[in-house]
Design a protein around this nucleic acid. Structure first.
Length: 290
DNA sequence: ATGTCTGTTTCCTA
DNA sequence: GTAGGAAACAGACA
C-alpha cells in the first residue's frame, strides 16, 4: 500500500512515543533486517530513546539517542521502508486491533519486528518483505541512503520542480515514479496526478509546455496534500483512484470509459479523452473538487 | 497445478 | 541517462 501519504501517517502514529525508551526488541522475522543481524539490532536499539521521526519520500527515519544525552550526528537511526505491503501500528500496550496497516488479506498481521517502549508498543509489519528495516550508524549514512532521491513530493517548490524536470527525457509516468525527480510518488498517486493534470502518462517530459508543467505541479501538490490528510490515496468517487478496480468505468470528470494499460511496467489507468497522447484537445473539461 | 497479478525498489542489460 | 526485464517476497485469483 504505502506511498508518501501512508508513510506520513506512520510517522504521525509515532509522535506519541517520541522520547520513549526502548525496553525490548523482538525480531519475529530477521528477513526484514537489512545489513544488520538480529543480535546486533536488538543490542544496539534496546535501551535507546526514540527521537523525532522524519520522512523523505517513502522512507521513514527514527533517530535514536542515548538516555541523558543530546542528539549527536553520529547517533544511529532506524530506517523503515514499507515496500508494497508494509505498515506500522503503535499501541499503548493493549493487543493491536485486527486489520489496519500492513495486514494481509486473511487478517494475518505479519508483525516482523515489535518494539516495546515505555508507554507503548511499535509494530513493524510487512507481508511480502520487499523492503525492510535498517540500522544506520549516523546522519552521514542516512544521507547516503537517501542521496539519489529527489525532493519530497509533498513539499517541493514549483521552481525546484521545474529544475528537476529540466533536461530530463523520457515518459512522464516512469519519471515521476522513479523517485529521482521527486520522492514519494507511487503507482496510484502518479495515475491520480496525471489524470488531474490532464496529461497522458506516456507524454514526453521534454514536450511539456510551461502551462502543462504548472498544471502538473499543482495537481501533484493537491493530490499529495489531500492524500496526506486522509492517510492514503482516497478512493473518492470524484477521484480516479476510486474507479481503478472497475474495468472500463466512466471517467469521473467527463464520462468517457477509462483506459487501462501498461506504462513503465506498471498497470496504468487514464482517461483517453482528458489525457490525449499528443497533448492537444480536451482542455475544456473542468476539474471537480477533491 | 500453473500462470498472472499486485499501491516497491534495485540490479542488470541494451 | 533511458528502457525494459527480472529478482527479492507472499499471497490472491483464474
Amino acid at each position: 500500500m504505502p506511498e508518501l501519504p501512508d508513510v506520513e501517517g506512520y510517522r504521525q502514529t509515532l509522535l506519541p512515543v517520541i522520547g520513549a525508551r526502548v525496553v525490548r526488541v523482538e525480531v519475529l522475522d530477521a528477513g526484514v533486517l537489512r545489513g544488520v543481524s538480529a543480535e546486533v539490532f536488538c543490542r544496539e536499539v534496546t535501551g535507546e530513546i526514540l527521537a523525532s521521526p522524519w520522512r523523505h519520500g517513502k522512507w521513514l527515519m527514527v533517530p535514536l539517542r542515548s538516555p541523558g544525552r543530546r542528539h549527536r550526528r553520529t547517533d544511529p537511526s532506524l530506517v523503515f521502508h514499507f515496500g508494497m505491503t508494509g505498515g506500522m501500528v503503535v499501541t499503548r500496550g493493549e493487543p493491536p486491533p485486527p486489520g489496519g496497516a500492513g495486514v494481509g488479506m486473511a487478517g494475518k498481521t505479519y508483525d516482523r519486528i515489535v518494539f516495546t517502549v515505555s508507554g507503548g508498543v511499535v509494530h513493524y509489519r510487512d507481508m511480502r518483505k520487499l523492503q525492510g528495516v535498517r540500522l544506520l550508524g549516523g546522519d552521514r549514512d542516512v544521507a547516503a541512503l537517501l542521496g539519489d532521491l529527489g525532493p519530497d513530493a509533498g513539499s517541493i517548490s514549483s521552481g525546484d520542480f521545474a529544475a528537476q524536470l529540466q533536461g530530463r527525457r523520457g515518459q512522464l509516468k516512469p519519471a515521476l515514479m522513479g523517485q529521482r525527480v521527486v520522492a514519494g510518488l507511487g503507482n496510484l498517486l502518479v495515475d491520480e496526478i496525471l489524470w488531474r493534470a490532464r496529461l497522458h502518462p506516456s507524454r514526453q517530459i521534454a514536450g511539456l509546455t510551461g502551462v502543462e508543467r504548472g498544471r502538473l505541479y499543482r495537481a501533484m501538490r493537491t493530490v499529495v496534500g489531500q492524500s496526506i490528510k486522509r492517510g492514503r490515496v482516497p478512493d473518492l468517487p470524484s477521484w480516479l483512484t476510486g474507479h481503478r478496480a472497475v474495468e472500463g468505468a466512466p471517467c469521473p470528470r467527463c464520462g468517457t470509459p477509462l483506459q487501462r494499460g501498461r506504462i513503465g511496467g506498471r498497470t496504468t489507468i487514464w482517461c483517453p479523452r482528458d489525457q490525449p497522447r499528443d497533448g492537444s484537445a480536451a482542455e475544456a473539461t473542468k476539474v471537480s473538487g477533491p
